[in-house]
């Protein structure tokens, strides 16, 4: 796939925020200032799990720059033990990651406060894969504190349980087709149940991280009032369709009053491809949906493959 030159962008600054007073309190935030004085909206990127974060970094950066150039303030957060934030992966727990997202969202809001006589710019939590699960957990906390937000999901993961199972299975990939995977999986689960960390593909996973991921679901948080949900899936086939797996989740958000737009676009699964790849159609569709006024958008969801 041809690489596109990065879009024109405003400036961006890496900075550390402090989420607690422990030696593990520093988190890296990459803040992309909007191309105009007043941000049209605030967007916080929540990265996916383990190696997927590294694979997706380029796409996240391309999208962040494009949105900043269009007048939004964007921040890319490195969670505890990831990227350039403090700690090792093995220090992470699900609850601390959710805290990280809440802290980063508040930092972004304080950095771009409401001006006199105007309402505060809308806050979007933008998640990819496991990041979508963290986003809704953090969004629920923000909503309880009176700060409603909208959601932008890339390749949402309706079930944390599935993500965990797939990651554990990396240890047993070679044995899958031979029917030998069960023993390896049972041993991993026994280790976790006994409160011991497991190491997979170079990542140490604490029991507290695994438990939180396993229980996470993409349920609509009780925001007041419900906001917008932009849901994008990628597929390599021509004329991609939404996966049946997300249908029940999408219906739940619609029933809860959220204005849902769901769309499948063509592109590679860049969070797992061997080479770093781009999905230009996703960048374009995301910017279009995010920048369009909600009233100009059809609230409908394209039908999932039944």
């Amino acid at each position: 796939m041809p690489l596109r030159p990065p879009p024109m962008a405003g400036s961006f600054e890496p900075r550390f925020i402090t989420v607690d007073d422990t030696p593990l309190g520093a988190r890296l935030l990459l803040h992309h200032a909007p191309a105009q004085a007043r941000a049209r909206g605030l967007v916080l990127y929540v990265h996916p799990f383990a190696e997927e974060m590294n694979k997706a970094r380029r796409m996240a950066a391309l999208q962040a720059r494009a949105l900043a150039a269009a007048g939004l303030a964007v921040a890319q957060l490195d969670l505890l033990g990831c990227g350039d934030s403090a700690g090792d992966f093995g220090d992470a727990s699900w609850a601390r990651w959710v805290d990280d997202v809440v802290h980063a969202a508040r930092w972004l809001q304080q950095r771009h406060p409401a001006r006199d006589g105007e309402s505060a710019p809308p806050l979007w939590l933008w998640g990819l894969r496991a990041g979508t699960l963290l986003a809704v957990a953090a969004g629920a906390r923000l909503a309880e504190a009176g700060s409603a937000c909208h959601y932008l999901f890339w390749q949402p993961a309706p079930l944390g349980k599935l993500l965990l199972q797939q990651f554990l299975r990396l240890r047993a990939a070679g044995e899958l087709a031979a029917g030998q995977a069960k023993a390896a999986m049972e041993q991993l689960r026994a280790e976790l149940a006994a409160g011991r960390a497991v190491e997979i593909a170079g990542y140490t996973l604490s029991p507290a991280l695994c438990k939180g991921l396993e229980q996470a679901e993409l349920k609509p948080p009780p925001a007041q009032p419900p906001g917008r949900l932009l849901w994008f899936e990628l597929s390599a086939v021509e004329n991609p369709r939404l996966a049946p797996a997300g249908a029940a989740t999408l219906a739940a958000w619609q029933q809860a009053g959220w204005q849902v737009q769901a769309q499948a676009v063509q592109g590679p699964p860049f969070w797992q491809t061997t080479e770093i790849e781009d999905a230009p159609a996703l960048l374009d569709a995301t910017a279009r949906a995010l920048l369009a006024p909600p009233s100009a958008q059809p609230a409908a969801t394209e039908p999932a493959a039944a």
Binding site: L159, K161, L162, A178, G179, M185, P244
Partner: peptide, 15 residues
Amino acid sequence: EERLGFVADDDLDGE
């Protein structure tokens, strides 16, 4: 699993 929304058993075999 991701397209159809299920979590496969650990003991799936070659058959």
